[in-house]
Design a protein around this nucleic acid. Structure first.
Lengths: 348, 348
DNA sequence: CTGTTAGCGCGTTCAC
DNA sequence: GTGAACGCGCTAACAG
């Protein structure tokens, strides 16, 4: 069986095959394809090599290249749960700029599980990723030691750490809370409650702190129970918390929640108490997840630019990778209140 | 500067360092850590090696390993758009079983763009991925030639190809359509319309075909305009299509749509026509995206097990990889109608 | 059971 | 400008 022909269906062509076909040396082919700055190559031969490569369907072996160069153009992205509606735009944004810069995105969903996170992190590290984007960070939990002394650059996405200063792309939660509060106050509300998401994320914590500070700032004198944190993120959590508050004689006339699901749960509590939204109680959500414009009533909520946040997180990392770790800065984006129909003037 | 000590903060320890520390040969250390089946190693020395590895913080270099073994435990996952609510559970499911089997997930969002897809595919191929999961397939568009003669196993997720038989994990669309139709027919509806999603996905095509077949089967005599396909996937697309139908003297009393967004657009058309849902017109959606239970009225829709679909797609691929490509089978899951409040008995 | 040796595919340092 | 040699970190052979 004579097999003198190039075998498009057989083994993958290697750089040597390309060099052979182009009638040049291996090293020349290498330089031609990666147009080496240090060792320029004759344009004519370069064209020849490129032609041969195309003809053979040559695809450079990233694995071999990485081993040689000790640079792996791959970034690990760790997500706590893709089902969380804020995650898809985050990931989409990150992947977009990473690909733009030639990086491949290694993806993992940890399902909010510590063991899963450790396992995925080890995977990423064994791939010698050039950097890591973490959307899984908990405020109180420092970066894993194996991570810090691996020396791999890390950027936190939509999260921050309390103690350790790690570059991050986050939003200014106080702006979102302030806009929501001022909207409500402008509508004449004075008894405003906050039902927060859990505090183990920086976002959750900052929203609560912002609520406390800004209400004090605006001269609102609220009972401490009016600023509380729920156990979870669900409609049921929001419903239960508001139900308790509505039973009070000094019940709130408006409620601001840490996410949209809880806001929708508030709808249920209001209805169950024989009240109406927004006539009796105004509701403001957070995140502007899909379809919140279609619920009844359409939800007033704080829109967070998650897609941009993902892009920024990736940009930060790419920058750091280029500048050899000089610019370890963070970025902070601004959310914007979206007024719909779940807020109305305070009842008199 | 004497640097005789192990440097946990310096260069990554290599297998040789581990072997040295454990007082064994490089190859022995290799076998100990990957407990090679073919070449068993003394449990005592194995423990020694493992201990040394742990102490040094050794992380095996997957890049070097892949170069040597010609096996890259990485799977590329190509997604058309993470913003599409069906995608997150798909990806989550796939990543979960891939990680379970030791595979790293390479992720890319093509933004429904051909050029982006080509670029990402080239990336994946250059990484010598062991397999590919594609959620981007278009019915009429065969697999890219560079892909087919790369020989990399491919599984299609939630999509199929018309001409080429590629293993896939999909759902049985005819079951979903049949359940929806029988529900409507049971409610006394006879004039039922279908407003489909575009036909370039197998799912879109199969839903339309199923609608036509089943309505004929059930003896419904529908004008051809009652089964139509919209240009896009949005609320506006659904609204416009239904508005035209509602203007007819023989307007439908029920409408089934190719996705949930279009179903919600139908709500708008119904309201604009001075009619009510479900009293005058019943609506059934498709996919059961988040919050469809909270819209007004809560949407009756076909729930599709996307998370399982993702798991199955990955399982299919892992199987094929184990069996060396012997079992090139496909899998078909079953959707289930979720009856809520957007459907009611036909008006008399 | 363990040590020895060779080389995966590529980029880079030297010589020419 | 181009050719030759070397080695990245690891595992598959083959001895011993």
């Amino acid at each position: 069986m004579s097999t003198e022909m190039a075998d498009p269906a057989g083994a993958k062509p290697t750089l040597r095959d390309v060099a052979l076909a182009a009638g040049v040396h291996l090293a020349t082919a290498s330089r031609a394809l990666s147009d080496s700055k240090t060792r320029p190559v004759n344009p004519r031969t370069a064209a020849l090599v490129r032609q041969a490569a195309a003809k053979l369907g040559y695809v450079p072996d990233q694995v071999a290249r990485s081993l040689r160069t000790h640079r792996t153009p791959a970034i690990g992205v760790l997500i706590p749960d893709m089902t969380n509606p804020v995650m898809p735009p985050l990931v989409r944004g990150a992947e977009q700029v990473l690909a733009q810069h030639g990086y491949t995105t290694l993806f993992a969903d940890t399902d909010n599980d510590q063991a899963a996170e450790t396992q995925r992190l080890a995977m990423f590290l064994s791939w010698r990723v050039a950097g890591l984007i973490l959307a899984t960070a908990r405020r109180d939990q420092p970066l894993a030691p194996e991570l810090v002394n691996s020396g791999v650059p890390v950027v936190l996405m939509s999260r921050k750490l309390d103690a350790t200063p790690v570059p991050s792309a986050t939003i200014d939660e106080s702006v979102g809370i302030a806009q929501a509060l001022d909207h409500l106050i402008g509508l004449g509300h004075r008894r405003i409650a906050y039902l927060g998401v859990p505090l183990w994320t920086s976002a959750g914590h900052e929203r609560l702190v912002a609520f406390r500070e800004i209400t004090r700032d605006r001269g609102l004198d609220l009972p401490p129970e009016f600023a509380q944190v729920c156990d979870g993120y669900s409609e049921r959590d929001g419903e239960a918390a508001l139900a308790a508050l509505l039973a009070r004689p000094d019940r709130p006339t408006a409620v601001l929640t840490g996410n949209d699901m809880m806001a929708l749960g508030c709808y249920d509590a209001i209805r169950a108490a024989g009240l109406r939204c927004p006539a009796d109680v105004s509701v403001v959500g957070y995140n502007d997840m899909p379809l919140t414009h279609r619920v009844d009533p359409p939800l007033t909520t704080v829109r967070v630019p998650y897609f941009d946040l993902g892009r920024q997180a990736a940009s930060l990392l790419v920058e750091a990778l280029d500048d050899r770790g000089s610019t370890e800065r963070s970025v902070r984006l601004t959310p914007r209140l979206l007024v719909r129909d779940s807020t109305a003037p305070a009842p008199t």
